[in-house]
Structure formats: C-alpha cells, structure tokens
C-alpha cells in the first residue's frame, strides 16, 4: 500500500466534520430553498415538490419579512456604530496612561461577554420592568415619565440595543486595546515634543493608526449584528407587534416552529446575501 502524506491524517478529522456538518447542510439549504419542504414532507418525503423561485417570490410579498428586514437594519445601523463607539471609548479609557491596574479593569469590563445570555436576560427584563424596574426609577428621579421598555413598540428595539451593547462591547474593546498597544510609543513622544495636546494626538496619531483595527471590528460587528437572534428571542420573542422581529428570528420561527423548512431556507439565504453584500461594501468603503 502506498504511504500517503501524513498531513492528510492531521486535517482529515476537521475537514470531514466541516464537510458533513457545514458544507453539506449549506448546500442542502440552498436546494431546500427551491422546494416546498414543510411539515408534511418531513413525515413523507414523497410530498416534496420543486417550486423554483416560489419561496423567494413569496418572501418579497410577505409583510413580515419586510418588517424583519427593517428591524434588522435598525439594529445594524444604530446598534452597530454605537457598540463600536462604546468599545473604542472603553479601550481608550482602560489603556490610558493614567489608568491604574489596567489588566484588572480590562477584565472587569470584559465580564458581560462571558455571561450566559438567557441568564442576564432575567436581570435585564427586571431592569426594564415598567413598574418595579430600576431604569424607570432612575428616569423618575430625573423627572422623566416612565417608559414601558419592552412593551412599547417604539422602545423595545432601543432596549434590545442597549442590552446588546452592554453584553458585547467588551470583545471589541479588547481588539481595540490590542490595536492601541501596537502603536509605537515614540510617535506620542515626538508629538508631545512638537507641542501636540492629547486631543491632537488622538485625532492625528491614534485614530489614523487604528484604521486596520476599525476595518476588522467593523466587519465582525456588521456580520454579528445582521445575525441578531438571541437577544429578541429571550427578551421579547420578536414582539411587541413584531417590533423586534429580526430576519434570523423569522427564519427560526418559520423553520422550527411552523416547520416550513423550504421557506425558512430561502430566508436564510436572503440573509446570507445581504450580509455578504454589506461586508463587501463596507470593506470597500473603509479602504
């Protein structure tokens, strides 16, 4: 028997797993999206029919899909930049020359990232509770009328965004800190000698040299935000009045609640196409 390249045995387990549990399902999803696979076909595959672009046409006429698209874009356009800004501010803060115990503060601000979403949803729902919640009591102290955060269609998405920023900013903060630490200290010293104040140093050294980090953070955040699912799933189930229904949540409901697997696959591919287009566009813009 011919001895094969030992590298084969090293990559075979991982590649086989990726092929069977990722590549194959993605290809199958594309195929499914052109069929009417539903609960009946799940029981009896003979009922499966090829319907071409039927699911995609149905999608374009589905008001729920447009609502979900609008909500997802809201989350991406408002929540994404907000999350990046908070991360950057936190990174500048914990990496500041005068900040003591940098490692400790970095880790403390990172804590929300390692928490379980279902569990922190418990406390956030309590914080947002209109009558007993802490947030409304703080607002009342400032003389602002109380808000039914998760019950008001206008406020539910902002509430989801606030919680998502809290949960996730630590990750990008670490990426920004890594970027900040790769800027040579000598640049700041030279600038200080030339009489540049802290604000000028930030504008003319820090931010321009962080450009590659911005690209990385921007793309990762964009992709992550388009896939919004878990936060509305545990906080609002997409309500009230579908105001927090995202595309991924709609796909989940169509697929795993109503078992319209064909239709749900079409939704998944539309989401994928949008993410891909947005990623390419953003990478172009930032370059």
């Amino acid at each position: 028997m011919k001895r094969c390249n030992p590298a084969f045995w090293f990559v075979a387990p991982a590649l086989a797993l990726i092929l069977v549990f990722f590549v194959l399902p993605v290809a199958a999803a594309l195929a499914l999206s052109f069929t009417d696979f539903d609960l009946y076909a799940l029981g009896d595959p003979a009922r499966l029919r090829f319907i071409g672009f039927g699911n995609y046409r149905r999608l374009l006429a589905d008001a729920e899909f447009w609502t979900a698209l609008k909500n997802t874009l809201y989350f991406v356009i408002v929540g994404g930049p907000l999350s990046v800004l908070v991360s950057l501010a936190a990174a500048l803060l914990v990496n500041h020359r005068l900040t003591p115990l940098k490692g400790l503060f970095r880790s403390l601000l990172f804590l929300p990232v390692v928490t379980t979403l279902v569990a922190v949803a418990v406390v956030w729902r309590y914080v947002y509770q209109p009558r007993y919640g802490m947030l409304n009591h703080l607002l009342e102290a400032l003389g602002i009328d109380s808000i039914d955060w998760l019950g008001d269609p206008d406020w539910a998405m902002p509430a989801i965004i606030l919680m998502a920023v809290w949960k996730n900013f630590g990750f990008n903060m670490i990426v920004f800190v890594a970027g900040l630490q790769s800027i040579p200290e000598s640049l700041y010293e030279a600038a200080a000698i030339d009489g540049a104040g802290p604000r000028q140093q930030l504008l003319y050294i820090t931010l321009p040299l962080l450009a590659p980090t911005f690209l990385f953070v921007g793309v990762v955040t964009l992709i992550g935000h388009f896939q919004l699912f878990a936060e509305p799933y545990v906080m609002t189930q997409g309500g009230p009045a579908n105001s927090t229904l995202s595309i991924a949540l709609l796909m989940y409901q169509q697929g795993f609640r109503w078992w319209n697997l064909g239709y749900a696959s079409a939704i998944a591919f539309v989401l994928f196409s949008i993410v891909l287009a947005a990623t390419v566009l953003q990478a172009r813009l930032e370059k």
Partner: peptide, 13 residues
C-alpha cells in the same frame, strides 16, 4: 456564511 443557514438541514441530517 452565517451558521443559521446550515441549521435547518443540519437538524434533518
């Protein structure tokens, strides 16, 4: 590729 794309066929598999 978002993981959610693979999820439905993965369940069938």
């Amino acid at each position: 590729i978002p993981g959610q794309v693979a999820m439905l066929p993965l369940f069938l598999l």
